[in-house]
Computed example of a mutant assay.
Amino acid sequence: MNLTFSAHALNRCLERDISLQRVADAILAGTMEGYGDRRILTHGRLRVVAVVQDNSCFVVTAFRLPNQNPKRHIQKQRARIRRFQRERR
């Protein structure tokens, strides 16, 4: 597969400390979601936005999702609900 990186993608990978090998692994082994003409490839917390055509792939950008603790997410959600209920009284 022919893999090409945009200047933006290279800058973001360097800025976010993401190796190009990890991006290639995400493209080869990750799950793919469609978003218009672009594809979002997911491999763990790593997300790669790319344009995939035939036997070539043009990487637009790459980023990692924040590491979230599920319990903390539930605590924040409950706090939002309580705050909303207080405001409606």
Rank of each mutant, 00 (worst) to 15 (best):
G36Q: 04
F84C: 03
C57H: 01
A62C: 08
R83G: 09
V60K: 02
R80V: 02
V51F: 11
R72N: 10
E33D: 12
T4A: 11
F84Q: 11
G34S: 10
M1E: 12
A7H: 11
I18L: 10
Q77S: 14
L41S: 01
R64P: 00
C13L: 12
Q53Y: 12
R78Y: 08
V48D: 00
E87P: 02
V51E: 14
Q53L: 13
F63T: 04
I18G: 02
V52I: 15
G30T: 02
T31R: 12
V60A: 03
T4M: 11
V60P: 00
K71Q: 15
R12C: 03
A24H: 13
A79W: 07
F5S: 05
R80S: 12
S19G: 05
E33R: 14
R78V: 13
L3G: 01
K76M: 08
R88V: 04
K71I: 15
R64F: 04
N67Q: 14
R83F: 02
A7E: 14
N2C: 04
H73W: 06
L3I: 15
D25C: 05
Q21M: 12
R82V: 06
F63C: 09
G36H: 07
R64G: 03
I81A: 11
G44P: 07
S19Q: 05
R86F: 07
H8S: 07
L41W: 01
R12Q: 14
M32R: 14
R88C: 02
L20H: 04
F5R: 06
G36D: 04
T4R: 13
R38L: 13
F63H: 09
F5V: 09
V48P: 00
G36E: 05
R45S: 12
R80W: 01
R83T: 10
F63I: 01
E15I: 07
R16C: 08
C57M: 08
D17R: 15
R22V: 05
A50I: 02
D37R: 13
T4L: 11
R39P: 00
H73Q: 13
I81Y: 07
G30S: 04
Q77E: 15
L20C: 02
N55L: 10
N67M: 12
L46A: 07
R22F: 07
R16Q: 09
E33G: 07
Q85A: 14
L46K: 01
A9S: 05
L10S: 01
E33C: 03
I40C: 02
A7R: 14
V23S: 00
R12V: 05
L3Q: 02
N11M: 11
R22I: 04
L3F: 09
R45W: 00
D54R: 10
I81W: 07
M1I: 06
C57S: 08
R64V: 02
D17A: 15
R64Q: 09
D25E: 15
I18R: 04
L46T: 01
T4N: 08
F63N: 03
F58H: 12
R12F: 04
L65R: 07
T42N: 11
R22A: 14
M32N: 06
I27Y: 01
A9F: 04
L65A: 03
V59R: 01
R16M: 06
C13I: 06
